[in-house]
Deep mutational scan, measured.
Amino acid sequence: LVRYRTISKIPQITLNFVDLKGDPFLASPTSDREIIAPKIKERTHNVTEKVTQVLSLGADVLPEYKLQAPRIHRWTILHYSPFKAVWDWLILLLVIYTAVFTPYSAAFLLKETEEGPPATECGYACQPLAVVDLIVDIMFIVDILINFRTTYVNANEEVVSHPGRIAVHYFKGWFLIDMVAAIPFDLLIFGSGSEELIGLLKTARLLRLVRVARKLDRYSEYGAAVLFLLMCTFALIAHWLACIWYAIGNMEQPHMDSRIGWLHNLGDQIGKPYNSSGLGGPSIKDKYVTALYFTFSSLTSVGFGNVSPNTNSEKIFSICVMLIGSLMYASIFGNVSAIIQRLYSGTARYHTQMLRVREFIRFHQIPNPLRQRLEEYFQHAWSYTNGIDMNAVLKGFPECLQADICLHLNRSLLQHCKPFRGATKGCLRALAMKFKTTHAPPGDTLVHAGDLLTALYFISRGSIEILRGDVVVAILGKNDIFGEPLNLYARPGKSNGDVRALTYCDLHKIHR
């Protein structure tokens, strides 16, 4: 019993810090008490220290592992850092350059016999395009090294910054494609005289377009951006097909006994025919423009016929181009109408809503002055909100995010209106959640004399007048207030005048 009563005193000691020596009952000389009392004092002292730490809000209350900052290894790049964003855009520009100039170089340097010394005699450094290609190869190699040090988000939505895990993730992902696209074939085969082989191998750079397509997928929600990307894709495919079309004609031209190829026909049409040795002929500019003209006309199913396939190889390629053109029509131009419709969806919704308003007016036989006010209010409210119901949009977000959005939407009023000066951010967040926005066209009466005042109004834009009878008592403008002081009276009061809008007004109100 003594032991039980001794232990039962522990909660009292913990909360009230009572010393055991003052209790005459606990001072009985028993061996059990002498053993338990020192333990009680020690526990009391420890609990006292913990309570003191909690009340003082000291940093040592938290466990040590929670006080440590997340460790980022040296030379690790955050995937959302500004440097990584700028670097990704730079790589994107280099990939676009590669997609345009690599097929052009591979096709127009394929057994090209233009006048001038061969590239091997001039030297590697004197070729501007080769120098640019070398810079692109170096940048792609540097990009691989950067990807080995860039964080990523795993399946659990955690940012991984450990170098080993980053390397394994990159090896399992895009490393092989990036490595093949970054191989400097110019340096590996330079001086061997195989410019045709170098041009063909350099087309491996186009593998990076797969990554670019995935990154550009984030802009699919913007109709104008999608339309622009589709047109660029169409032009890029036409450019690639033009390079292939020229390569076919250029390879067949020296081996044909009869002059029936499209390059021969082009030379005869523009007065620059090929001679018996295969030299001469149109310039590279004429060849490229004509090839691009043929691919565009074939892809769009126009086909004027002034550039036509004559050999079997050219006919087979033309059939493939027609098939590609039909697929592009289905996948690209078939979506253009939907994209344009999405661009004008706001206008369509406006006309639909206006039609419903006019049908309501016609069905209920609203008189002319009231009908005009109804239409003007709808037009003004639509121009202010673009038909978007803010309350319906915010309803799907958590309250903390709703408060931040409301604070942002009402920031101008909260910053410049005098009653809100000096208020804490928590108070402003709470008030912003209570605001209701209303609009009024010129001549609209917001409050009639004798109406119950259940709200306090803040003028965000425009001006109003307060009338008693036919006498203008006051004219209020931006950041002015009218209405009933909230919670100042037990019952809502009545208006002693009319409140009429002089201009288009936007008002925020808080109800009782």
Results as ranks from 00 to 15, higher is better:
64 E>V: 05
66 K>R: 11
66 K>A: 07
77 I>E: 01
78 L>F: 13
81 S>L: 01
90 L>Y: 03
93 L>V: 12
95 V>R: 03
98 T>M: 01
100 V>Y: 01
101 F>N: 03
103 P>I: 01
104 Y>H: 01
105 S>G: 01
107 A>W: 01
108 F>T: 01
111 K>A: 08
111 K>M: 11
116 G>E: 05
119 A>N: 11
120 T>F: 04
132 V>M: 14
133 D>L: 01
134 L>F: 06
137 D>K: 11
138 I>M: 03
142 V>Y: 01
145 L>I: 01
146 I>K: 01
150 T>Y: 01
155 A>N: 11
158 E>K: 13
167 A>H: 01
171 F>H: 01
174 W>A: 04
175 F>L: 08
180 V>R: 01
183 I>W: 05
185 F>S: 04
186 D>M: 11
191 G>W: 04
193 G>V: 03
196 E>G: 15
204 A>S: 05
206 L>W: 01
209 L>Q: 01
214 R>Y: 05
218 R>P: 03
219 Y>P: 04
221 E>Q: 13
232 C>V: 05
243 C>M: 01
252 E>A: 01
256 M>P: 11
258 S>C: 03
266 L>I: 01
268 D>S: 04
268 D>Q: 13
270 I>V: 03
274 Y>H: 01
278 G>Q: 03
280 G>A: 03
282 P>C: 01
286 D>L: 01
287 K>V: 04
288 Y>G: 01
290 T>C: 01
291 A>P: 01
294 F>S: 01
301 S>A: 13
302 V>D: 01
306 N>Q: 01
309 P>K: 01
309 P>V: 01
325 G>V: 01
325 G>Q: 03
348 A>R: 11
356 R>M: 14
357 V>K: 03
360 F>R: 03
362 R>W: 01
366 I>R: 02
368 N>M: 08
372 Q>V: 15
385 T>E: 12
395 K>I: 07
410 N>L: 06
417 C>D: 06
420 F>K: 01
422 G>T: 09
423 A>F: 04
423 A>D: 01
423 A>Q: 05
428 L>W: 05
430 A>R: 09
431 L>F: 07
435 F>T: 06
436 K>T: 12
437 T>V: 11
441 P>D: 06
448 H>W: 03
